[in-house]
Simulated scan of single mutants.
Amino acid sequence: MTRPVFRFAPSPNGELHLGHAYSALLNARLARETGGRLLLRIEDIDIGRCTPEFEEAIYRDLAWLGIEWEEPVRRQSEHFADYAEALHRLIDAGLAYPSFMSRGEARAMIVEAEANGREWPRDPDGAPLFPTAERGLSSRERRTQIDEGEPFAWRLDIDAALAHASTPILWDEQGSGPTGESGRVTADPAAWGDVVIARKEVPTSYHLAVVVDDALQGVTHVVRGRDLFHATAVQRLLQELLGLSAPVYLHHDLVLGDDGRKLSKSRKDTGLAALRTAGLTPTDVTRMVGL
C-alpha cells in the first residue's frame, strides 16, 4: 500500500506567521497519524522577492516547532526546466497564448467598458477578469512583438482548454470551501478567465509550478488554507490537460488576526521569530492555533 505524501510549501518572501504554523503543524500531524511522508518545498519562483535569508528563517522556524521533513528539499528555482517542458506542451496544443497587454492597459479597457454600461465579469476573489482580446492575434503579430522584445505573459486560453479537457472536472475535498463545499467538488476554472501560466522571463507561474511539483513528488494530499479553495479549479484543469494525477485536497480554516482579516507576511502579523523572541514555546504556538 502506497504511503500518503503530504507537503508544506512556503514562499521565502517574508517571515512565517501563525497561519503558516497551523498549516505546517497540521500537515505534520496528518502525515504522522497516517504513517505518511512529509515533504518541504520552497516555492521561490518569484526571484525578485524571495531571499536566502527568508529561506533559512523557514528552516529555523519549522525546526523550532519540532517539525521534521524529508531531504532533499525541492526548491522551485532549481527546476525551471520541468515547468518549461509543461508550458511548451500547452503552447504546442494551442492552449496558451502570449499576452502583451499591460495591467494598466487592461484596467483602462475595463473602465471604459463599464462606463459604457457593460458589466465586466469578475473572478472568485472579486477582481475583473483579464481581457481576452489578444487571443485573436495572428502568429505573425505575436512573433513580431516577441522579436521586438515586448514584455508578455503566457495566458491559458480558458475556452480552448475546457474544450480540450474531459468534463466535468472534479476533485476530492476532505476539508471544506468558503460556503461549506466538501466531498466531491465540481471545479469551475472558467471563473478565473485566462490566467497567467508563465512570464517572458520566468517559464512558470504558481498554478503551473505547483501541479508539476505535486506530480513529480508524488504528493497524494494537499493540505492548505481555505483561501486557495477556488484556485484548485485552475490547478485541476492543468492536471487534466497535462495528464497529471490529482491529489486529495483538504482546505483548512485560516488563522485570523484580531481585526478578522487573514494573517499576512506584508503586515508582519504574529511572526514566529518574534513570538520565539518574546519567550513563547512551540507548545504555546500549537495551542494558539488550536491544535
Results as ranks from 00 to 15, higher is better:
1 M>N: 08
2 T>M: 12
3 R>K: 15
4 P>G: 12
5 V>A: 11
6 F>Y: 15
9 A>P: 08
10 P>E: 02
10 P>R: 02
10 P>I: 09
12 P>Y: 10
14 G>T: 12
19 G>L: 05
20 H>L: 03
22 Y>R: 15
24 A>I: 00
25 L>P: 09
25 L>K: 05
26 L>D: 00
30 L>C: 03
31 A>I: 03
32 R>N: 02
32 R>S: 11
33 E>R: 13
35 G>D: 01
36 G>K: 08
36 G>Y: 03
37 R>L: 11
43 E>C: 13
46 D>F: 04
54 F>A: 13
57 A>F: 04
57 A>K: 13
61 D>Q: 07
62 L>I: 02
64 W>N: 08
65 L>W: 00
66 G>N: 04
69 W>F: 09
71 E>F: 05
73 V>H: 07
76 Q>L: 12
76 Q>I: 05
77 S>R: 13
78 E>Y: 10
81 A>C: 03
85 E>S: 15
94 G>Y: 05
95 L>D: 06
96 A>W: 08
99 S>A: 15
103 R>A: 14
104 G>K: 13
107 R>D: 06
108 A>H: 06
111 V>P: 12
117 G>K: 11
117 G>M: 11
122 R>G: 03
124 P>E: 05
125 D>Y: 11
132 T>N: 11
133 A>D: 14
134 E>M: 10
138 S>N: 06
138 S>I: 06
138 S>W: 05
139 S>G: 12
139 S>C: 02
139 S>N: 03
140 R>V: 13
142 R>E: 01
142 R>W: 01
144 T>P: 00
145 Q>K: 15
147 D>V: 06
150 E>L: 14
154 W>H: 12
154 W>E: 02
155 R>A: 03
155 R>S: 03
157 D>G: 08
164 H>G: 00
166 S>L: 12
171 W>Q: 06
171 W>E: 04
172 D>M: 12
172 D>H: 13
174 Q>S: 09
175 G>Y: 03
177 G>N: 04
182 S>A: 13
182 S>K: 15
182 S>D: 01
183 G>H: 06
187 A>H: 01
187 A>Q: 00
190 A>W: 09
196 V>W: 07
196 V>M: 08
197 I>P: 07
200 K>V: 00
202 V>K: 13
203 P>K: 00
208 L>C: 06
214 D>N: 13
216 L>M: 12
216 L>A: 14
220 T>N: 12
221 H>M: 07
222 V>I: 14
223 V>H: 06
224 R>L: 12
224 R>Y: 00
226 R>H: 05
228 L>Q: 08
230 H>C: 09
234 V>T: 05
234 V>F: 09
238 L>S: 10
242 L>G: 10
248 V>N: 04
250 L>N: 08
251 H>P: 02
254 L>F: 05
256 L>V: 11
256 L>R: 14
257 G>M: 07
257 G>S: 08
264 S>M: 09
267 R>W: 02
270 T>R: 14
270 T>L: 10
271 G>Q: 12
272 L>T: 02
272 L>S: 04
273 A>M: 10
276 R>V: 02
279 G>D: 11
282 P>L: 07
283 T>S: 14
283 T>D: 15
289 V>L: 11
